[in-house]
Design a binder for these strands. Sequence first.
DNA 1: CGTCGCGTTGACAAGGTTCAAATTTGGTGG
DNA 2: CCACCAAATTTGAACCTTGTCAACGCGACG
Lengths: 221, 221
Amino acid sequence: MLITTNDTSRHPVDGHLVALTGQRTFGTEFKYRKGRKVFGDGQPAEYVYQIISGAVRTNKLLADGRRQVNSFHLPGDMFGFENGAIHRFSAEALVETLAWKMTRSGLLDAMASQKGSTTKLLRLITQSLQHAENHMLLLGRKTALEKVAAFLLEMDERQDHPNVMILPMPRRDIADYLGLTIETVSRALSILRDERLLRFVETTQRQLVLLDRFGLAQHDA
Amino acid sequence: MLITTNDTSRHPVDGHLVALTGQRTFGTEFKYRKGRKVFGDGQPAEYVYQIISGAVRTNKLLADGRRQVNSFHLPGDMFGFENGAIHRFSAEALVETLAWKMTRSGLLDAMASQKGSTTKLLRLITQSLQHAENHMLLLGRKTALEKVAAFLLEMDERQDHPNVMILPMPRRDIADYLGLTIETVSRALSILRDERLLRFVETTQRQLVLLDRFGLAQHDA
DNA sequence: CGTCGCGTTGACAAGGTTCAAATTTGGTGG
DNA sequence: CCACCAAATTTGAACCTTGTCAACGCGACG
């Protein structure tokens, strides 16, 4: 399996920026309402964020509106770390989200005074890189059905294999994450449902139960 | 334009691992012959590499042989930095390549004793991440023609806009980088040639001249 | 001079998109 | 609590971009 386990979601404390720097003297908690923009493409990259609760998506846009969702960030995930002075993508809250927010320079300063924190920050960023590497393989080389199966398994893994999986994002976001259209995502989900690999809870479209994870994994490449 | 400029290729010294650590006491130069594997997927991730001359591609494979080339690394680029103990992709020399090679732990140790080096390493890794983000947009949302145009502009940029651009990789690698087939890459190149946006040198297929960079950029999204 | 690897081109097939419409869901106000 | 409406999702049919299969050309090399 090529799913990247996000360890920080399992061990929240270790992965948190607070744990990185060892202090709470700077940075603040911030709440974002559903749909609200955390930061926009091209805006000054002053802050680095880590999700406490909720979910955020980061995405890039082409001039004509085509969109690519880079990743969905869940509790424990860090995002917004940039090289330059401006963000190269935008971030929006999928649901009401609580995030820890601190300045980039503050983070770096704090790390300078904390032995071992460098390694931890490197690990967080390298995790993003590994996710991106896996996702490039998915985008470039997997079929629609494989993409959707891989997506479900990724969410399942990151939510720690719950009985009922809740998708905090609409089909459009899933489609833009997988490089597909919403219709193709919908058709793929219907196929997997008809094959009894999953079922939706009641009449909802965002809550589902994975009935056969092994079968799903076989649909993934 | 969404092309990521690789600053290290312009300022080789600043970006080098040697410059990072400020010492030459560990790490060695190593030569890889054309086609030779630098490291393989699943192998122990002991070393970190930086290219001095030549070119390397890093890629991932699916069980049935489908391949995704993550990136082409040119002089100044660092690669092979991993979180865990093993590599999550493989790296092969496209042409005879000279690379600086040092242990991962050695690099981290050396950095601990060098003020400011952390920032430099972070910058190198964040650069990889930004490239991956741009590439996800390309893979997920661009058309075949846009992909090929973007690829040519990326190579042009990274080779500092030479009169004659040399492609060190075969069509298969380009196709696997762009998530296309070699036939589609070939057709796209023929279209751009017929539109007088580029021409091949003599009868070669790996040396070409970009006749109209602006026109190419318009084909990119 | 024949063979082999690489690249190009053509014809056809297919997976995924587009366009359209039906259906369902979830939120809102009475 | 219920009716209603807008948004989200599903489904169907036609179409199109890209992939597949096949043939051919070309240059490198023995």
